[in-house]
């Protein structure tokens, strides 16, 4: 399994990277490479030019500022696991980081790459949908912010322009009474989810205030479970409400059958996981885990 031939560039500044991207129409950005390089080894991807942005060290950061958590696109997944602020204030993100691929992959894989790949089987899309995150895209004319709801446009397709690079992810800082959880059922460590559910909510007394729910690998495009959100929103999370939310998610997701399971199984599993993730998120909200 040997990749095809390509030209390789390793810019050291973002401007240089953008300039290269502008000059090479067949170019692919190489971030962590943990999806791209296997695809190249199978010759499923045969880019003519690779622009390796691993040299852009200033895209590797996690910092809370101005009411949001800013994550540089080149932040490794393992850095999320090691980050005190993520572990203490962003439990949904902390949950997610632990179950992406395996520890060796997480040492190279990046948050930006995971999102830019726009693979509904990846874990960050659901998590960022639940957080209502923003994507910062930088192009030759500067940066713009894209709401996560507008970011995923198709299977492996996103709304980045041809000359743009994903440079940052911004997660709104959770207010008091907030909680989140990511629950993933996978066949074994390292596998994609059979189904996984990301929940981020804020409690309003004993009722759910706001809630967003993202689903992993049960749709061709990363999706929010808006029906489930509606069922849980403004409600006390009774067994009935949880069941209604779960059933709404089961109905609105669009899984396809594969070796991981049938459509019926994935729908019902999504129902179960939505209930569990809502419950855990609410527990965390109550426990002050934010």
């Amino acid at each position: 399994m040997i990749p095809g031939q390509f030209d390789y560039h390793a810019p050291t500044t973002l401007d240089e990277a953008l300039s290269l991207l502008g000059h090479h129409s067949g170019a692919k950005i190489l971030a962590g490479g943990q999806s791209l390089i296997p695809a190249m080894r199978f010759r499923l991807a045969q880019p003519e030019v690779l622009i390796d942005i691993n040299g852009l060290g200033d895209l590797d950061y996690i910092r809370e500022q101005d009411g949001h958590l800013a994550i540089g696109a080149m932040t490794r997944e393992s850095a999320l696991e090691a980050s005190t602020v993520v572990q203490s204030r962003y439990p949904l993100l902390a949950d997610t980081a632990r179950v992406i691929a395996d520890p060796l992959v997480r040492n190279l894989a990046t948050v930006g790459g995971n999102l830019a790949h726009a693979d509904p089987a990846n874990d960050h899309p659901a998590t960022m949908l639940a957080y209502g995150a923003e994507i910062v895209a930088t192009g030759p004319k500067g940066s713009r912010r894209i709401a996560i709801d507008d970011f995923f446009t198709g299977l492996f397709e996103n709304s980045l322009g041809d000359n743009e690079i994903l440079t940052e992810i911004r997660i709104p800082a959770p207010g008091s009474g907030s909680g989140g959880a990511y629950i993933k059922t996978e066949r074994k460590v390292g596998d994609y989810a059979i189904s996984a559910v990301a929940v981020q909510l804020a409690m309003d007394g004993d009722r759910v205030g706001t809630v967003r729910i993202g689903l992993t690998n049960v749709s061709p495009v990363p999706m929010r479970a808006v029906g489930a959100e509606a069922a849980a929103s403004r409600s006390v999370l009774s067994d009935e409400v949880l069941e209604a939310a779960g059933q709404a998610a089961a109905a609105e997701c669009e899984p396809s059958a594969d070796l991981r399971g049938s459509v019926a199984y994935k729908r019902d599993l999504t129902r179960v996981l939505v209930k569990r993730a809502l419950r855990r998120a609410a527990e965390r909200a109550a426990g002050g885990a934010s």
């Binding site: 059922t185 066949r187 059979i194 399971g261 049938s262 199984y265 019902d268 599993l269 209930k275």
Partner: peptide, 17 residues
């Protein structure tokens, strides 16, 4: 014995969560 095989017999028997 995949999770789905177990799930299937559980649901057929009316067991759920």
């Amino acid at each position: 014995i995949t999770p789905e095989k177990v799930w299937k017999v559980l649901r057929e028997a009316g067991v759920t969560d």
